[in-house]
Design a protein around this nucleic acid. Structure first.
Lengths: 229, 229
DNA sequence: AAGTTAATGTGAATTATTGCACATATACAA
DNA sequence: TTGTATATGTGCAATAATTCACATTAACTT
């Protein structure tokens, strides 16, 4: 069960919801493949490994796929998230519009100075001292870390202690769990924006280098042609 | 040249900067491997494919690695980014602290209503009508999209027309370039927060399911033992 | 009702990625 | 200077991921 695989599943699911909204009743592996950028064979293989059934000629039933994928991806349960750190990024996330349609809800925010938080989102903001209690009481499993990097690992510890099992980290440090009670039991995703940008710069730069090379090669070819002529 | 590979390179680089700051002069493949979570063999393989030289006993020279990686990752050029959409997320990014140390700088923001933007970052904010001009004049290659989903693909088009080659998209839609002049020439990274969260929920949920299973299995084992006894 | 077309489902082949293991070289010690 | 320990560099092996190719079967057509 690999990262890319799960990512594809969520992409399938979101796409299927959109298709359903458009009135689609069934869909083919090549439609799905085109839309999320993989080969139809891979789509079929994915569905095959999940035992998602299709019809030999009629493709896949959209409703069936959605239902089964929702189950597999755990949408049958409430998907509640807390945000720790209510600065610019934290509060921005609370207002983020892309969640509601996915059954995900940010239910609370925590900050060392909740009284200073400028919050227009309607999500309640509590002091950090309430964090553990809240998470335990509400049996919250997923949290977003949006604190400064200096606080991040401290917060991580507290979250794990409180029972959080999935963490999305926006702090500009690569968090990973070093404690012995953690391996396997807590998943951390780092959204490292600087890293993403560097990645982009690399691609852009190397692309340009390639193009220059290609250009040079072209020139050489045309020179060769000139020679021939 | 795969995605994970490039990601590892940037991780190596960042780690090396930290190590340099700590006074390290050389470093071993197992140090690096431990820190970024891969085997030492893979580190050596990576460096080998990039012809990054090491010493048979003395490991790798930190300065050399940094210098070469910076070149490979394109840090020898200015790394300027513009942000399109100066809402909560856009302005939050402008204040983001993790960039400066990486030679990345957000140089301008664009918004349909620049006069309404509450901006404390010092980054100049312009109207959308200035976007193309600015990008062309400053030869900017990378942009962040932080507009509502309804605007995202429109903005994407404008950015590509203006000459942007790398895009980090925070709008809650999966952007990809559908135009014929685009394939290969523009790289788009989607930071889809909802997708990330779904991913986490999936992992958390499936982990719990596994644990329950394991628990059940354990019980069965202990029952079997009871039977034996 | 029979034939044809067009899709799935999947074993096998291919390709990409990662890890192993050891020859090789180099820093350091005695 | 000689020996030894230790880390690299890399062909090869193992594993994982993807694609191919085609048998299979269900929906349409006639």
């Amino acid at each position: 069960m690999n990262k890319d695989f799960i990512l594809r599943l969520t992409k399938y699911k979101r796409l299927l919801y959109k298709l359903k909204a458009l009135g689609f009743e069934r869909v083919f592996s090549n439609n799905l493949g085109d839309a999320i950028g993989v080969t139809p064979a891979l789509v079929r293989k994915d569905f095959s490994t999940l035992s998602l059934p299709g019809n030999k000629r009629g493709g896949y039933n959209v409703d069936t796929l959605i239902e089964k994928l929702d189950k597999i991806l755990g949408r049958d349960r409430a998907q509640h998230v807390v945000v720790v750190g209510c600065g610019r990024i934290g509060t921005a996330l609370m207002e983020y519009s892309g969640f509601n349609t996915d059954g995900i809800e940010i239910v609370a925010g925590f900050d060392t100075h909740p009284e200073n938080v400028h919050n227009t989102s309607g999500v309640p903001i509590y002091g950090m001292d309430k964090l553990t209690e809240y998470v335990r009481e509400h049996d919250t499993k997923v949290a977003i870390i949006a604190v400064p990097d200096s606080e991040a690992s401290k917060v991580l510890d507290r979250l794990i202690d409180a029972g959080i099992r999935g963490i999305l980290n926006f702090a500009p440090v690569e968090l990973k769990c070093t404690r012995n009670d953690c391996p396997g039991s807590t998943t951390i995703h780092n959204v490292n924006i600087a890293l993403e940008l560097e990645h982009l710069f690399y691609q852009v730069n190397s692309q340009e280098a390639e193009e220059e090379e290609a250009h040079t090669a072209e020139e050489e070819v045309s020179e060769a042609k000139d020679k021939d002529a």
